[in-house]
Design a protein around this nucleic acid. Structure first.
Length: 296
DNA sequence: AAGTCGGGGCC
DNA sequence: GGCCCAGACTT
């Protein structure tokens, strides 16, 4: 859950997820619909599927892997996660390199290597492995990440509070703002999208992404014109913005009467939406429609 | 090496 | 409106 997601955002999801899937076997045997419903809103849904695959592999093998290499073979466990679990849970000497640590290292050493490039990350991994406290790697890794998350902030680093300011090369030379160097950002793309809110007797017309879809498989979505050919737009219910990765969507939602041909869409009872995997975009539209419509 | 995947919070 | 987050995987 913590992959590319802030701790504060994860905590409520983590609590609910663990109360529903309290152990490896429970997660391994969970219905896909449940898994996605409990992850819905967190984003990066391949993480949920990989986590379940990992649980199934662990259940199959009979024990939790306790080395970096064995953890690294689990689906969804890359360099960072494998090092974090191996060091924190099993005291294995592997440096965990996340966005926080990259920032701390680049500042402490005033190192202008591009942290966005794979080669740059390999460069910093070499440094991290050298400075790692091999007697308490878990504590060291967490200290590095915590320093980056609380003191060595991206935009307003709290250098006056920093316990290692005296050995920070960037601080000593007054160049903290120059680090880290991060190149090659994509520009965001603005796109207009029109959705239709078709409601009848407590149900709403939705389509479901195929289970084998690459993007958000199994999720319910609000239909656009392509899903309901010949649909007549009624009143504009409202609009909102929805940004996903580098797409910036301007979304408008129109009310519409049920068409004769509902195409690939189906009626979904609105009361059941909370238990279904539903995209955040649909949740935003739902809130919009609850506000602007007179529901009875 | 580059492209892609969500969503939210902060400035 | 842009940036970044306790990254990983595919192409």
């Amino acid at each position: 859950m913590l992959q590319q997601t802030r701790v504060a955002a994860v905590i409520p999801y983590y609590e609910r997820f663990l109360s529903r899937f309290p152990n490896v076997a429970a997660l391994a045997d969970a219905p896909e619909q449940d898994l996605l419903a409990y992850w819905a809103g967190l984003g990066y849904y391949h993480r949920a599927r990989n986590l379940q695959k990992a649980a199934q592999a662990i259940k199959q093998s009979g024990s939790f892997p306790d080395t970096y290499e064995a953890i690294r073979r689990l689906p969804g466990a890359g360099d960072y996660t494998s090092a974090a679990v191996a060091s924190i849970a099993f005291n294995r000497p592997h440096a965990a390199l996340d966005g926080n640590v990259l920032r701390v290292l680049s500042r402490v050493y005033a190192d202008g290597t591009d942290i966005a490039a794979p080669a740059g990350r390999a460069h910093f991994r070499g440094i991290a492995d050298q400075v790692l406290d091999r007697t308490q790697p878990g504590a060291f890794n967490q200290a590095m990440m915590e320093l980056g998350a609380t003191i060595c902030l991206p935009r307003n680093p709290q250098c006056l509070l920093c316990p290692v300011a005296s050995l920070c090369a960037a601080r000593q030379t007054g160049r903290v703002h120059e680090f880290p160097v991060k190149l090659g950002r994509e520009k965001s793309v603005v796109e207009e999208r029109v959705f239709f809110w078709v409601e009848r007797e407590g149900s709403v017309l939705l389509w479901q992404r195929p289970q084998d879809a690459r993007l958000m498989p199994g999720f319910y979505e609000l239909p656009e014109r392509v899903h309901l050919p010949g649909i007549q737009a009624g009143e504009l219910l409202g609009e909102f913005r929805h940004a996903i990765t580098f797409h910036n969507y301007r979304c408008r939602v129109y009310e519409a009467v049920p068409p004769e041909d509902t195409g690939a869409c189906g009626w979904v009872r609105m009361r059941e939406l909370p238990q279904l995997p539903v995209s955040t975009l649909l949740r935003k539209a739902e809130r919009l429609c609850r506000r602007t419509r007179t529901v009875f």
